[in-house]
Computed example of a mutant assay.
Amino acid sequence: MSARTLTVAALQTAPVAHDTEATWARYAERVRAVRDLFPHVQLVVVPELMLAAEAPLLQSADGWADRAAVTVPGPLTDRICALAAETGLWLVPGSLYERRDDGTLANTALAVSPAGEIAATYRKVFPWQPYESTAPGDHFVVFDIPGVTRVGLAICYDGSFPETARQLAWLGAEVIVQPTLTTTRDREMELVMARANAWTNQVFVVNVNAADPAGVGAGVLVDPDGTVRQQAGGGEELLVDTLDLAMVDRARAFGSNGLNRPWAQLARYGSTIKLPAYEGGTFKTPPWAAGS
Results as ranks from 00 to 15, higher is better:
Asn201Gly: 00
Thr23Trp: 05
Gly255Arg: 02
Ala253Trp: 01
Asp62Phe: 07
Pro130Ala: 11
Ala165Gln: 05
Pro276Leu: 07
Ala52Met: 06
Ser60Asn: 09
Val205Phe: 00
Leu221Gln: 04
His139Ala: 15
Leu191Ser: 10
Ala55Phe: 02
Ser2Thr: 15
Tyr131Thr: 09
Arg166Gln: 14
Val216Gln: 03
Leu83Tyr: 04
Lys274Ser: 14
Thr71Ala: 15
Leu221Asp: 02
Trp64Lys: 06
Ala3Gln: 14
Phe38Cys: 07
Asn207Leu: 09
Trp199Asn: 01
Tyr131Glu: 13
Ala198Gly: 11
Ala65Asp: 11
Pro56Ala: 10
Tyr27Val: 06
Gly291Tyr: 06
Leu191Gly: 12
Ala28Trp: 07
Thr7Leu: 06
Asn197Asp: 14
Phe143Thr: 00
Thr285Lys: 04
Arg185Trp: 07
Arg250Leu: 12
Leu83His: 00
Gln178Ala: 15
Gln265Phe: 12
Val248Gln: 00
Phe143Pro: 05
Gln202Leu: 01
Ala232Arg: 03
Val45Ala: 02
Glu163Asp: 13
Trp263Leu: 09
Asp102Asn: 14
Pro136Arg: 08
Gln178Arg: 14
Glu48Ser: 14
Glu86Gly: 01
Arg195His: 09
Leu76Arg: 13
Asn209Val: 06
Val228Asn: 04
Asp244Cys: 03
Trp199Lys: 08
Glu86Leu: 01
Gly291His: 14
Arg123Ser: 15
Asp78Trp: 00
Glu279Gly: 12
Gly233Cys: 14
Arg32Ala: 13
Asn260Leu: 12
Leu110Gln: 11
Arg250Asn: 12
Leu153Tyr: 11
Arg250Lys: 09
Met193Arg: 08
Phe126Ala: 07
Val46Arg: 01
Leu221Asn: 00
Leu49Pro: 06
Thr71Gly: 14
Ala14Met: 05
Glu21Val: 12
Glu163Cys: 07
Asp241Phe: 06
Ser60Val: 09
Asp241Ile: 01
Glu98Gln: 15
Arg67Gly: 02
Ala120Ser: 13
Ile155Glu: 08
Thr23Asn: 03
Val8Phe: 06
Lys124Pro: 05
Ser2Met: 10
Thr7Tyr: 05
Thr282Ala: 14
Thr242Met: 06
Met189Lys: 10
Gly172Tyr: 10
Gly94Ile: 05
Leu110Ser: 08
His18Cys: 11
Gly226Phe: 00
Val46Lys: 01
Val34Leu: 08
Glu117Met: 05
Leu57Ile: 08
Leu89His: 03
Asp78Tyr: 03
Tyr97Lys: 13
Pro114Val: 01
Pro56Ile: 08
Ala17Lys: 11
Asp36Ala: 15
Trp170Ile: 02
Asp223Cys: 00
Ala85Gln: 11
Pro276Tyr: 04
Gly94Ala: 12
Thr71Ile: 02
Leu221Pro: 02
Gln129Arg: 15
Pro286Trp: 02
Arg4Ile: 01
Ala264Gln: 14
Leu238His: 04
Ala84Pro: 02
Ala14Leu: 02
Phe140Val: 02
Leu191Thr: 10
Val203Gln: 04
Thr5Tyr: 08
